[in-house]
Design a protein around this nucleic acid. Structure first.
Lengths: 222, 222
DNA sequence: CAGCTCGTCAAGCAAACACTTGAATAGTGG
DNA sequence: CCACTATTCAAGTGTTTGCTTGACGAGCTG
């Protein structure tokens, strides 16, 4: 049983990714970084924490190898170490959705009642993009759109959405998407659009899933 | 920013599977349960903890929905809730192997130097089973063999292995497997067998991965 | 039903964790 | 080189976690 110690150490090591993701705040960070790299301060405001605290969470993710850093001037950009981290996060979410009874309640508390909102799968969106009979809106912040978006989507950050509505062809079907299945922006966009008499639906997951599925994407410089 | 609270709660919920797996001990439990259901006391001895402590870990996994229970007489059998839990555990391991620098060292500390040991992939083993030019040994405890094993494998629990060696055709290639990529038994078996002049290799992962890949398996009653 | 086995529960303790605050450091720009 | 910005570090605090011990409860067996 001298092995016990070594076995325990090995298994403690094998779960270090789980330890790193075993905090809602760090999961929020991963969810944001799945959209593209970000400097610390922006991540901090995104997750509603102090910069110092966010920095510590980032260090934790870094030690677990889930993120990497790049320095530019005096800001430090954090990014996911690779796609498998985003995949792990997606898997975690879906296991929780299947097995944890009150995820649904928590989701409704945060997102509101989603049952009225039309959703569209990736396959469906692909098909409709091919037929060009749909307008796709990326309602994430502009920086995330620039870092990568569904090929053919227009940028309409959620807080500029109302100004952009009039530019859209009045009879078009609109599909909005954002960061992932639990991101509020697309829900808000669909509600706003339907309130204004548009036909709108949301993509059932977000940009990272689209990109990871190998579907067509575009990026812009800067 | 009233949303902050609801968002935090949602994300805390979404990571509950990660929280449940964020303990080496609970990961050991999941690794054992991936072989089939087990009563509490056996799990406790398997992971080298007291029954009370093990019971608490199991409750934790239960609350996260990762395991389910079944009562038989006065023992309670725990099992993984479904295959996706085993998949999540496999993904966690492989992310750690990729990103955590000292997994390799920890593995060597526990398993010894593996570099001498021949390994075989699932595809390779499938091929060789088809050609019937190989003997496959399941070196896990007999109960796990009964709960499910690679079709065509013989049961040779590691501590009975030495007695069983003589029954094996002297010139056969032998392939041993056990619980997964970080399980000691197959390594030990290969070392023992080669020390006795047999040609032996280990399957690079274990039974659960074989079964999840949809490859042929057998079970025995009891 | 007495005594046994198996599992859970409750209380207690030390270690780890999440967050705060305030100070330190690296790099930029006048 | 001084002031400024972005990030990290260090110390402090309250909370959570992992483990232990001992008591309790459920269900079998004689």
């Amino acid at each position: 049983m001298a092995d016990r110690v070594a076995k325990a150490a090995l298994f403690d090591g094998l779960v270090s990714a789980a330890k790193a993701l075993a905090s809602g705040r760090r999961a929020e960070i991963v969810d944001v970084l799945a959209q593209g790299e970000r400097p610390v301060e922006e991540i901090a405001t995104e997750i509603g924490q102090t910069v110092a605290n966010t920095s510590q969470h980032l260090q934790h993710l870094l030690r677990a190898g889930l993120v990497r850093t790049r320095r530019d001037g005096n800001r430090i950009y954090y990014a996911l170490a690779d796609d498998r981290v985003a995949e792990l996060w997606a898997m975690l979410r879906s296991v929780a959705a299947d097995h944890v009874a009150d995820i649904e309640r928590l989701a409704t508390d945060y997102l509101g009642d989603r049952r009225q909102l039309q959703t569209v799968t990736r396959a469906e969106l692909t098909r409709r993009l091919r037929h060009r009979d749909v307008v796709v809106l990326d309602v994430r912040p502009a920086a995330e759109y620039r870092a990568g978006h569904v090929a053919g989507a227009l940028s309409a950050p959620i807080d500029e959405l109302t100004h952009k509505i009039q530019d859209l062809p009045p009879d078009a079907d609109i599909i909005a998407y954002c960061r992932g299945p639990y991101c509020v922006y697309a829900d808000q966009a669909v509600r706003t659009l339907t309130r204004r008499g548009r036909r709108a639906a949301r993509l059932e997951d977000g940009y990272p899933e689209w990109a990871r599925a190998g579907l067509p994407v575009n990026t812009l410089p800067n």
